[in-house]
């Protein structure tokens, strides 16, 4: 079983988001970068579990500049076997996905896994783009994944419920909560991560950006909270009906 796990780099979840240069750029000053939570917690850990049970290897891939190397080392410390970094800071999801797809096309992975979505660009589209470029089946937002021979079974969230689906390998899957439990790297992992292979390769051709952010905007701020007496819930109901008009 050869598994490729896609890892993106995102601002720490506690980051206060602000913009600079007349709101045209994300203010990265003082920002701590982390592995995107769903990539690290679910996609990577489930990939490791599958390989631990069935043999094989887990390669992690990141499209981005050298700032990502320390995050890649963390993934190696958690247990991935080797890593690839495609040395270009992607400007949109297509650029990241097209690079990963072209790299994967030269290898033969049974599974390509992504997280649910990045917490900075929230597209949830990189996995689908990779799948279409490689003409592979794609299952998005899987909350469980079991592989039996050349068949994978997944539970997926849908509106108001869940469905169980089956697909044959090779396959692209995006991982949602429930698929695995977060793993914390241990000392031995951190030590061995230093000597695991991390190859840095240049960007592929035909991976130009298609979507460009022209300007950012902060979300509107809410006015002061209107406090309602806890003994007067009729008043809250009245406000929600008459003033807010939401019930």
């Amino acid at each position: 079983m050869k598994i490729l796990v896609c890892l993106s780099k995102v601002p720490d979840t506690t980051t206060k988001i602000s913009f600079t240069d007349n709101n045209t750029k994300f203010n990265a000053q003082g920002v701590t970068w982390i592995l995107n939570p769903t990539d690290e917690w679910y996609a990577l850990v489930r990939a490791l579990e599958i390989v631990e049970q069935q043999g094989g290897s887990v390669t992690v891939i990141h499209v981005g500049n050298a700032e990502g190397d320390q995050l890649i080392r963390k993934a190696l410390a958690i247990g991935a076997n080797d890593a690839v970094r495609i040395d270009v800071e992607p400007q949109d999801a297509f650029q990241a996905a097209a690079n990963i797809a072209q790299y994967a096309a030269q290898q033969s992975y049974d599974l390509i896994m992504t997280g649910k979505e990045t917490i900075n660009y929230n597209g949830a589209i990189v996995g689908g783009i990779i799948a279409e470029i490689l003409e592979l089946p794609y299952v998005s937002l899987a909350s469980s994944l079991d592989v039996n021979g050349s068949t994978a079974t997944m539970k997926c969230e849908i509106e108001g419920g869940e469905e169980t689906v089956e697909a044959s390998l090779p396959l692209v899957v995006s991982a949602n909560k429930g698929m695995a439990e977060q793993r914390i790297p241990n000392m031995r992992g951190i030590m061995t991560a230093r000597t695991k292979p991390l190859s840095v390769i240049p960007a592929f051709a035909n991976t130009q950006t298609q979507v460009e952010v022209v300007k950012f905007e902060a979300p509107p701020t809410r006015g002061n909270v209107h406090l309602v007496d806890p003994d007067n819930m009729d008043e809250l109901v009245r406000l929600l009906h008459d003033e807010a008009k939401v019930i």
């Binding site: 589209i125 689908g128 794609y138």
Partner: peptide, 23 residues
């Protein structure tokens, strides 16, 4: 931008060589 849409839209965009702006 539903559960199905998130799997469908990227595939359609690649087939059409069209930019995809999600959500």
């Amino acid at each position: 931008h539903s559960y199905l849409g998130r799997a469908l839209a990227p595939r359609v965009s690649v087939r059409l060589k069209a930019a995809l702006v999600p959500a």
